[in-house]
């Protein structure tokens, strides 16, 4: 019943939210010579905005404050995509609706970009092989995954949680914009280089800061941080597996509690777009505190208003990680 309720709500929610955003989607008609770029969810929107600057109009499909896993495109989105120039999505199964949408579209000029191309994928986590998967992960990084495997469920789609991968995604987006609008090539290149330097700098800060700590384990709401953990040699344990918002079972909760006790974990991370109830229950059990570790899947309205972006949110994540790992 809970499932049905959530599906019903999710559907009505997207419908109502999207009607609210209708005015934005309708502006497609009004081109003003700018490239019309659609992105599936927040980080891609942020990267496209950074590279495209004032030469492109970027519209984000997943509305502010909505978990991308819960999203379905509306009729209005489809109509807007028919008029769009570029469509950017993450791929690797993050947007389950993409294949269907793309096969329905009649827009032959649409340049479709799978931003995660060229990233070294890692295996997704399943609860049952808690111990083995860390080793599997190591192997997976060594060898190149071929693209046929991309859409299998076992690959972790949250590639942008690694700043290095985020840079790759931004580069893919830059290449796509250059392809769609070769006249402004230099402009896009310059923007890309400008931000790529910032990404590298933040990545270096992460490496320098996190290498100081002896503790390497973090407990997170859902296992979205596989790539971040891989970059800085951390281990994530997720309360709810790779998909957000499922009811936890008691066995999983006791596993996490025991794990936290064993590793003297002082902070349980939760996400802003997912209910903190379970994280709070576990934190109370072991006398830990709860903190936000943001997987940057989407920002809240307040964050947008405050001018937050991928880089600033990641910098906040670093602060949170520092507190969690220090003893």
């Amino acid at each position: 019943m809970r499932k049905i309720a959530s599906i019903t709500l999710a559907m009505t929610m997207t419908v109502t939210v999207m009607t609210g955003c209708g005015s934005k989607a309708n502006q497609v008609v009004d081109h003003e010579g700018k490239l019309q770029v659609y992105t599936s969810f927040y980080p891609l929107y942020d990267f496209a905005t950074k590279v495209g600057g004032d030469k492109v109009d970027v519209v984000n499909l997943v509305p502010t404050g909505v978990e991308p896993h819960d999203y379905e495109p509306s009729a209005r989105n489809m109509a807007a995509l028919e008029e769009a120039d570029v469509f950017i999505y993450n791929g690797v199964g993050m947007e389950s609706w993409v294949d269907k949408v793309l096969s329905t579209l009649e827009n032959e000029d649409l340049l479709v970009v799978e931003a995660s191309q060229g990233v070294d994928f890692i295996e997704g986590h399943t609860h049952d092989h808690e111990e083995e998967h860390t080793h599997e992960e190591e192997h997976a990084h060594g060898e190149e995954h071929n693209h046929d495997e991309e859409h299998t469920d076992s690959v972790d789609p949250h590639v942008w949680t690694s700043i290095r991968n985020a840079k790759i995604e931004m580069e893919n987006i830059k290449d796509a914009l250059v392809e769609a609008d070769p006249e402004n090539k230099d402009y896009y290149e310059a923007n890309y280089n400008h931000y790529a330097t910032q990404f590298d700098a933040l990545d270096k800060t992460f490496t320098d800061t996190l290498s100081q700590f002896e503790n390497r384990e973090i407990i997170v709401a859902h296992e979205a941080f596989g790539y971040l953990c891989h970059d800085y040699d951390l281990t994530q344990v997720g309360i709810e597996g790779m998909n957000a918002d499922s009811e936890p079972d008691p066995e999983r909760m006791t596993e996490i509690i025991e794990f936290a006790k064993e590793h003297e974990i002082k902070v349980i991370f939760f996400e802003e777009l997912v209910s903190p109830k379970v994280a709070e229950t576990i934190a109370k059990e072991i006398g830990a505190q709860t903190m936000v570790l943001n997987p940057v899947e989407g920002l809240t309205e307040e964050q947008i208003a405050a001018g937050e972006d991928y880089l600033s949110v990641m910098a906040q994540n670093l602060e949170a990680l520092k507190k969690a790992l220090s003893r």
């Binding site: 809970r2 309720a5 959530s6 019903t8 709500l9 559907m11 009505t12 929610m13 419908v15 109502t16 939210v17 009607t19 609210g20 502010t64 404050g65 909505v66 978990e67 819960d70 918002d245 009811e247 936890p248 079972d249 008691p250 909760m253 996400e271 802003e272 777009l273 997912v274 209910s275 903190p276 109830k277 379970v278 709070e280 229950t281 809240t300 309205e301 307040e302």
Partner: peptide
């Protein structure tokens, strides 16, 4: 359900929303 569906479009913070919408017997405050 209708009222909830329509009004949920105006709720900004989905986490807040979800935490009141669905309870779980193993996570009780």
């Amino acid at each position: 359900i209708g009222i909830a569906g329509v009004l949920s479009g105006f709720v900004k913070n989905t986490a807040n929303f979800n935490s009141f919408l669905f309870g779980s017997i193993v996570a009780i405050s």
